[in-house]
Design a protein around this nucleic acid. Structure first.
Length: 491
RNA sequence: GGUACCAUGGCCGAGUGGCUAGGCAACGGUCUGCAAAACCGUCUACAGCAGUUCGAUUCUGCUUGGUACCUCCA
């Protein structure tokens, strides 16, 4: 690889030089959603973060296998491995088959991700489709002696594991500290130790989703699916495992423990965690009831929203913060992002048509911008820094357009490549207006109307020319009179 | 209570032991019939207190405030 990529590894708590296991190939596993409700703004963050990672890796020349799962079973409603299955509960409430719930919300999740320009993963496995693999994994852990059977359920023996391997190395926890603060939770009578976690749960009579197993009619524990599916599709050892910071403990810690016992090693080289989106400084989450769904954002229908925000504005908003920082939601911040995004897109469009001057001297800044953008992206995906340099490029493009400075073909090509390969390619920021199929028709109509206005202007009929401009504005078309004629954009 | 993390200008957000991002907003100017956009310029912040240092927003300690995880959550 020509460029060195550094990634922050949660396991070492440091930025590390990324070295793939197989040259030029990257295996990436990311924890996807539990599909029992609509995706909210919080879900957009890992979606976009790891999408940019995949795009960046590909841009750097790697072949990437990106596995992002759909959790459709085993994720319980309550604490301590008791309570209803999230999917099962929703199914009961809505009087649908669990798989209908899964289907509905999976499709809606896909649709939201598509609108955010998040590319589909290479493989999107479902937990319910890998019951056999999970049962095999439970057996393996039992055979290794790190699990026990209790009343039809199988639990991971955290104490025994801790003695040999140390439980808590990923999340930075010490088991003795945790012990001192163990709370009394209900429904733990089957466990030997409160931090033991379920690998297989015997289904209670009201539990809808269950499968036969050597131990009981039941269902797999939540942490199991990621271990089983990552191994199936990426092998015993793979490069990167990503997910939200809230999954660090217990989910990823348990996953690591399962891997260590069944594979003889943690299996993951780089653990990456995106931070949370907050609202009024507080984490946006389902349990807190302070979340805004992506659909509501796109429509502007939530009571906290002043207006609708386009998917790309949201993408830009998320990219303007580093993925490991919390990001606070507010209308002001989103509106700022919307404007910044539009400015960036306008420049990406304008670079195509700006006039070159062959004998113009090279603009030194162009090469610097290019270098700085790559450096930022390769420094643990510092998208805010990359964007700040890209705005320097925007400034140059606008200056050339205003004929304040001149540009030669070589510099223009560099800027064009930045806009094309980085802004659109890696950051995935694309113009949204082109979604309309009848683009040509609109173009033609607007041109006609503008011709009319031109005539009015020639006759100094300002009233008419202003009316045309105002009327167009009212339907969302903004006119701009420039030295070279009239331009227009759809708002 | 335990373990982490954070506190940056009107807002959002990077980053650094000295050269002090960027976006949005605001103000002044250029352009324009008027707008809009763009361009030029202005606005110089790093919670408080002590310490280390020639020098700290950046390191250390303390104080205050906040957040996350410890139970489901992206």
């Amino acid at each position: 690889m020509a460029r060195e990529l550094y990634l922050y590894n949660t396991l070492s708590r440091k930025k590390e030089l990324f070295k793939p296991i197989h040259p030029n190939m990257v295996g990436l596993y990311v924890c996807g959603p539990t599909v029992y409700g609509d995706a909210h703004l919080g879900h957009a963050r890992p979606g976009i973060t790891y999408d940019v990672l995949v795009r960046l890796l590909k841009h750097l020349g790697y072949k990437v296998r990106y596995v992002r799962n759909i959790t459709d079973v085993g994720h319980l409603e309550n604490d301590a491995d008791v309570g209803e299955d999230k999917i099962g509960k929703k199914a009961r409430l809505e009087q649908l088959e669990p798989m209908e719930i899964v289907q509905i919300y999976t499709l809606r999740y896909h649709d939201a991700m598509r609108r955010l320009n998040v590319a589909s993963p290479s493989i999107e496995p479902r937990a319910s489709g890998h019951i056999i693999e999970q049962i095999a994994l439970v057996q393996k852990i039992l055979d290794a002696g790190y699990a026990y059977l209790s009343n039809g359920s199988v639990y991971f023996d955290v104490k025994k594991y801790d003695k040999k391997y140390k439980y808590g190395i990923l999340s930075g926890r010490v088991i003795d500290d945790m012990l001192a603060n163990t709370r009394n939770l209900d429904g733990q009578q089957d466990k030997h130790f409160s931090y033991d976690f379920a690998l297989w749960k015997k289904a209670s009579p009201e539990h809808i989703m269950h499968w036969p197993s050597p131990w009981s009619e039941g269902f797999p524990g939540w942490h199991l699916e990621c271990s089983a599916m990552s191994e199936k599709y990426l092998g015993e050892e793979f490069d990167i495992h990503g997910g939200g910071m809230d999954l660090l403990f217990p989910h990823h810690e348990c996953e690591l423990a399962q891997n260590t016992v069944s594979r003889g090693k943690g299996g993951v080289h780089y653990w990456m965690h995106n931070n949370m989106i907050t609202i009024n400084g507080q984490k946006m989450g389902k349990s807190l009831g302070n979340f805004i769904t992506l659909e509501e954002l796109f429509n502007g229908t939530h009571k906290l929203l002043d207006q609708a925000y386009s998917p790309m504005s949201i993408r830009f908003f998320i990219l303007q913060a580093h993925y490991r920082s919390t990001l606070d939601f507010s209308n002001d911040a989103l509106q700022a992002s919307e404007k910044g995004f539009k400015r960036m897109m306008q420049a990406a469009k304008d670079i195509k048509t700006i006039i070159v001057k062959e004998d113009a001297p090279a603009i030194n800044e162009v090469a610097e911008i290019e270098k700085n953008v790559y450096d930022a992206l390769c420094d643990d995906m510092n998208t805010p820094i990359a964007l700040s340099y890209l705005f320097d490029a925007v400034k140059i493009i606008n200056s050339v357009k205003d004929k304040n400075i001149f540009i030669n073909a070589k510099d223009k090509a560099k800027l064009d490549s930045l806009m094309e390969n980085i802004v659109k390619g890696v950051l995935g920021l694309v113009d949204e207006q082109t979604e309309v199929g009848s683009e040509k028709l609109i173009d033609g109509l607007v041109e006609m109307i503008i011709d009319n206005r031109k005539e009015a202007k020639a006759n100094k009929d300002w009233a008419k020319s202003d009316k045309i401009r105002d009327d167009l504005k009212a339907i969302g078309i903004q006119i701009k009179d420039t030295k070279d004629g009239c331009e227009w954009t759809i708002e």
